[in-house]
Amino acid sequence: MTRRVFASVPVWSVIVPVAACILLAAIWGLAQGWLLSAVAGSTLLASVLVAVHHAEVIAHRVGEPFASLVLAVAVTIIEVSLIVSIMLAGGENATTLARDTVFATVMIVCNGVIGLCLLMGSIRHRTIGFRVEGTTPALAVLATLTTLTLVLPGYTSTTAGPTFSVPQLAFAGVVSFVLWGVFVFVQTIRHRDYFLPENAAAEDSHAIPPSVATALLSLVLLLVSLAVVVGLANVLAPTIQAAVDTAGMPHAVVGIAIAMMVLLPETMSAVRAARSDRMQTSFNLALGATLATIGLTIPAVAATAIALDLPLDLGLPAKEVALLALTLLLTSMTLSGGRATILQGAVHLVVFAVFVFLAMVP
Rank of each mutant, 00 (worst) to 15 (best):
G337K: 15
F164C: 03
I78M: 09
N111Q: 10
A303R: 06
A59Q: 09
H53M: 09
T43S: 15
L291C: 02
P197V: 05
T304F: 10
E203R: 09
L69Y: 00
D100F: 08
R339I: 03
A257Y: 03
V235H: 10
V109D: 04
G134P: 03
P162I: 09
D313K: 12
M1S: 14
L118I: 04
W34V: 09
T188F: 04
A274K: 01
V62D: 02
H53A: 10
L35H: 11
G295A: 06
V9P: 04
D193Q: 13
V11H: 10
P162F: 15
A46M: 13
P17W: 04
A7V: 00
C21F: 15
T127L: 10
V50N: 04
T331C: 11
C117T: 08
V113G: 00
V253I: 08
H191E: 13
T297Q: 05
V50E: 06
E56S: 09
P299R: 07
P10E: 05
Q168F: 08
A289N: 09
I83G: 02
R99P: 00
E56W: 05
V75R: 05
F130Y: 13
L323G: 01
W34P: 00
F171G: 02
R61Y: 14
V52Q: 00
H125D: 11
I189P: 00
L216P: 01
T214R: 07
A89P: 00
A207E: 15
R131T: 14
V48M: 07
A55H: 01
L222S: 07
S165R: 13
S68W: 03
A172R: 00
I208G: 03
G90R: 10
V212G: 08
L264P: 00
T239G: 11
P197F: 08
L287V: 04
T188E: 06
V224M: 12
V178I: 15
T147R: 01
A252L: 07
A207M: 14
R192C: 11
A286M: 06
A207S: 13
L263D: 02
L316V: 04
V228N: 11
V9G: 02
M249Y: 10
S205E: 15
H206S: 15
V48C: 10
E203S: 15
V11F: 11
A46H: 05
V57T: 06
N234P: 02
L343N: 03
L232G: 05
V220Y: 09
L232E: 04
T267P: 01
T293F: 04
R4T: 12
D204K: 15
V244N: 10
S122P: 04
S85V: 10
V14N: 03
T101C: 07
T127Y: 02
A74T: 07
V39F: 13
V106D: 01
G315V: 08
V50C: 09
H191P: 01
L358A: 12
A170S: 03
V9A: 13
L329V: 14
W28P: 04
L116A: 11
G63V: 08
V184L: 14
I258C: 06
V244I: 14
